[in-house]
Design a protein around this nucleic acid. Structure first.
Lengths: 159, 159
DNA sequence: GCGGCTATATATAACTA
DNA sequence: TTAGTTATATATAGCCG
């Protein structure tokens, strides 16, 4: 894909293969997140390297996606590829409203604390309150950092 | 990515969002397969559209990948120890206490304030800061509410 | 082995049929 | 809608430090 086109076949050289694995895996993760953000979708990617290491990332969480997939797969006989097609858009959201809000709040950078907070108990509230305090400090610190560096743009292609 | 750059934010228009979803999903599937072939890896990608439809593909099979993932996740007490996760790598700063606590307090999912904040520009920071402020007020308000009602449990399952 | 740095190969947003 | 087309934005293979 770049300075020279390559065939999609096993890369024999260990070092090269590992480098490619790392780069492409990161690219996949980035694109997975982009898809979720752009389309209000939820997904996860799980990859096992040849060495057996696991790399997974997902929105809202890999476990959530996996569990839901398994639940549906049972109904479908566990096919390699499940389809639901695109005609009946606007079906019931798979996630609860609260989950969606949290996802949006956190992943999308927009907060919907109202609903989130409403579902917390006393202990969680106390904990969360201090966390919010801390979060505020970090945001402020980062803001100063940005101002100090004289830049107001986004450092890298971050999502 | 093309005739005009777009920001990675929810696409409001239904038709456009769906088109993008389809194209990007296919692109992801293609790249997932390429990664597997190039690096002798095994992986799967699972995506739920907003409508709740599932799209999954993997090598050797989604179920195999999913099962192996779950087996590993169990040994590790969840996905916390799994390599890649949300917005940044494990290589980067480890989870802060704040992150861990928020994760626990809210959903058991994951987020990475540190990484998120690090990728924000000035305007986004300003916005986030005010949101954090607001969140703090709401948490406090809710805390008083809970105390007043003499209960510390969760109102109801939904929202 | 990681983090840049290009030069290309791909992916894909907007458009058209 | 569901496909092609095209012009750009991204991803990334091969190198370096």
């Amino acid at each position: 894909m770049v300075r020279r086109k390559i065939e999609i076949k096993l890369i024999e050289d260990d070092a090269k293969r590992h480098t490619t694995f790392t780069k492409r895996r990161k690219g996949l993760e980035k694109k997975t997140k982009e898809l979720c953000h752009l389309c209000d979708a939820e997904g996860a990617i799980i990859v096992f390297s040849r060495a057996g290491n696991v790399y997974a990332c997902g929105n809202p969480a890999v476990n959530v996606i996996v569990d839901r997939y398994l639940a549906l797969a049972e109904d479908n006989g566990g096919e390699d590829r499940v389809h639901g097609d695109a005609d009946e858009e606007e079906a019931a959201p798979p996630l609860t409203e609260m989950e969606k809000m949290i996802v949006e709040a956190i992943e999308g950078g927009r907060l919907a604390w109202e609903a989130t907070v409403r579902n917390l108990g006393l202990s969680e509230l106390a904990e969360l309150e201090s966390l919010v305090e801390e979060a505020k400090r970090k945001v402020a610190a980062r803001a100063r950092e940005v101002v100090a560096s004289g830049r107001g743009d986004i450092p890298d292609g971050g999502i």
